[in-house]
Amino acid sequence: MLRYVIRRFLLALLTLITVSALAFFMTWLSGDPALAIAGDTASAEDIAAVRDHYGLDRPIVAQYFSWAGRALRGDFGVSYHFDLPVSEMLATRLPVTMTLGAASILFALALAIPLGVLAAVYNNTIIDRAALTIAVLGQAIPTFWFALMMMILFGITLRWLPISGGGSWAHYVMPTIALGYFATPVLMRLTRAGMLEALESDYIRTARAYGLPIRSILFRHALRNALIPVVALAAVQFGFMLGGSIVIETVFSLPGIGWLGYDAILRGDLPVVQAILLVVAGFYVILTFLADLLNAALDPRMRSAG
């Protein structure tokens, strides 16, 4: 087990280093940052001064190492456009996206697990098919379209929910549903498959034969086994959501890192884009690492499959 953990940890570390290099060099390609910083009325001397000030004339590899070194200490530089430390901007935005991601994944699980269990228990009945239909429909509706439709209905026509911003819990309701429902089908399918497998296992059959109450079989035994991969996948999905909430945050003007990233890309604000790429990737790497450990700890067979 320890060997697996160490190997998996090294892989995570290597991935993170690769991503940081990609984030740095990719955004670097996007043109001369000195022009972006120098602004509207810059003269050639202004631009040269900016280049000098930000160390933009040093070799690119040297710039990467000094950037990565500072990033390790949580210093992502200063935004070209807002004169604020990037870490400070991230600190105010990250909780918003984290809240949204967590709420969305909980919403998705709350929908997916009951539906998946129902679909498995009533396998090949109308209930099963209904659940699958929900899944298929869910995958076919683009998130932003769904979000706009909700905005019209709940925000304007009914005036039940606030439309934009992130002031209170109510502001998160529509974004959570919009983001969460898209993750539901995958989780539901996995729950259903896991439940079907568990219900057909010898262990459960034996329990049934012994006359254990069906509810106890379902919830204490079958579901527990089926849920392990679901939880692991949910953790991974949460990682996806941190990077995938851009459209939702933009539509609802939710001040999270997705919106910040979109805005920074529009403005060519490199330090912000780099920092967001790195932070989001970092979260994903950590979450998949933990999910793999969880799977491995609970299911020894998986250790060899890592």
Binding site: A12, G244, L266, V280, V285
Partner: peptide, 17 residues
């Protein structure tokens, strides 16, 4: 693993930009 850890939509936006 590396590909999955890159936030697809953000990277796509940046590349297109």
């Amino acid at each position: 693993g590396t590909r999955l850890s890159l936030p697809l939509f953000l990277v796509a936006l940046a590349v297109v930009a």
